[in-house]
Design a protein around this nucleic acid. Structure first.
Lengths: 209, 209, 209, 209
DNA sequence: AATGAATGAGTGTTCATTCAT
DNA sequence: TATGAATGAACACTCATTCAT
């Protein structure tokens, strides 16, 4: 988890600058188009060689980019399964928070998506773990909701967890594709969608949430 | 819309052969890895130059690939809004059919997804139009369902249409990512998801679907 | 032993031209200095890329260079152990022939030496086998000569074979280092050197060679 | 010949440290692979720039390396032409001593050989002079031996001197190439080789060596 | 005396594309 | 129609060297 050695202040700043330029470049021209030359130009560096000076190779740079994106979002949208709110509230807050994060970090998210598609190793190296953790969180909330009678008990939690996760994937794609999307109403419908899909219609029980 | 000139039979066959090889290659190694050399090798051509001979440039080849993929799927999963079935049945059949198509055409769909991410221009050039048409179809069914009282009347059809479309995007991602997915149960939950989300809960009406 | 596929006439000519330029370049500036750019310039090619077009990578080019050098020399200096001459005559003819070959192929030999030192894999990949074969040949002649009483019987054939082989190495170095060496007298002394070193001084026997 | 300015103690130590690391690095990865970065890492320096700080350029560093290697060996294996031993004894002691030195200084010698091949200018700049001095020494001993009747008088001293020098080259190559060589028996045969090759067969004289 | 950041030329290799045959 | 040879720009990455601090 710790970097191999301490970074000087200058080095840290340069790396951050390069990572930022890499994110923007990848978001704009895709992973394949994001050459060191283009990234260097965007970062205002004199030479692509400077990137190689600060990063061992392209893989390390991309790893840093991914870490940066995940690091930015990790806490803002984490599921609060331990929170004293109802399972439904926790789930819907997660969905809403995720979309809000995607919306406010479109460039970061676009870069991440581009990397996943353009650099297949990225998935197994960095992405899968984060996705699995997210899925686990959703599954736990769903299971708790079923146990408490908030949610229908006729679905398999893991399957529905995957489904919700995929819906967020779909929402992300939309956000990246449709710049002028009415995010508010989209989010409202999405949350309703999820609520209706999982809630227990047995009114005698679902009302006491 | 019309090709500049008539194609001879041989020429058409060659183009089809190249397009097929391009689809397989892109699906396998991504857009970035699908060089003319690799495509030519897979197609059994003697030289990458032959591709340039039959297609003006890479853009034209990719355009043909996209057209081919859309052409393959267009009829199999078109929404039958004019069909004498209930709106709910039509919608769910569309969702189910779409996933089934994705499942049975993973190579085509993977190529399409790779192109969208690796060649950003592809979206505005070819993809957006097809997506809009699909959205229009879904919207019409939703509107009809609301009018007929099958569906809740408290959602904006276009927004929910987008939402459903995006769910299919998410499902496609899942299919391409998880080769051994239990497609049957995934589809079942997805259809249930959509049904619960749009149906009118007023039992006196929703029961006769 | 056979190339993977037939080469066209043009391709064969180009490869030969490139190999020739590579040999000259390596001989002149060493393995490390022999970049594709320099080789291409010497061969009159428009771009270093053309070398990559004809050879899979630098390793293949170097392999061809080594093969070319060995191919050129293989028959001219092979030891004729089966020849109906005395062992001493065979040995000395081999020594003399080797030096003559080195002398007349200084550029080739210089390239070979440079490769051996600049590209360590070359040794185990291509060189060791040839050297071993050469050593085996010398050893056989020495053994035969001992059996027939031509040579002293108080040396271990393999050790002296190595020694003679190394003397040829030293002679090669000299040839490459001293352009105006008096090769004739050098060779004469070298042959004498070897003869005196191995011959049996028992005059009753050594006189009838 | 003189350094431009006096070196401080610290500076001298640093240069020595760098030269040592350079020798080891060159011996290990060859001249081509011995970048300032690698040398600096082996020397435990913080930056390759420090090498440039202490040496004007790579040429100066290599010059120092060569000087160091020659300096190490110069006294240990110098021919003692003025020594009160027979010429044959002096010659054979020189041969034996040279091989022993090579054997005990393989790293130094390997570095030297690598430099000679990887940096062609090295020969004329530093190596040739040393070699000529060595040759002169051998030639003197040979001449003396001929005059005294110890050696055959039918060879040209300079030519045979070159020949013996070259045999040492060959022996060095062998040592560097064959790590597990039986040095003792190799040396014994080599000495015998040389003795037989130069000694005067007139038994009345050659026996009293 | 030393550091670490920076530079720009150079490395082998791949690319889409062109063109004579 | 098709081939295979050729082109030159681009790729990630390494190099010896410089320089402000």
């Amino acid at each position: 988890m710790q970097p191999k050695r301490e970074l000087t202040f200058t080095e840290g700043a340069r790396r951050a600058q390069i990572v930022k330029a890499a994110i923007e470049t990848i978001a704009e021209v895709g992973y394949g188009g994001a050459s060191f030359a283009r990234i260097a130009k965007r970062a205002g560096l004199s030479s692509p060689g400077l990137i190689s000076y600060h990063f061992a190779d392209k893989d390390e740079l991309i790893g840093e980019v991914v870490a940066n994106v995940y690091g930015t979002g990790s806490e803002q949208i984490r599921l609060r399964a331990d929170h004293p709110m109802s399972s439904a509230a926790a789930l819907l807050a997660f969905v809403e928070g995720s979309v809000a994060f995607y919306d406010s970090h479109r460039v970061h998210m676009r870069a991440l998506v581009q990397i996943i598609h353009g650099y297949p190793q990225a998935r197994e190296r960095w992405v899968d773990r984060a996705n699995d953790a997210e899925l686990d969180g959703i599954e736990q909330v769903l299971t708790r909701g079923q146990r408490d009678g908030e949610f229908r008990d006729d679905f398999v939690p893991r399957v529905v967890a995957v489904l919700i996760r995929d819906q967020l994937s779909g929402a992300l794609q939309r956000l990246l594709t449709t710049p002028d999307l009415d995010v508010a109403s989209y989010t409202r419908e999405l949350v309703t969608f999820c609520r209706l899909a999982v809630e227990n219609r047995d009114t005698s029980r679902s009302s006491d949430v």
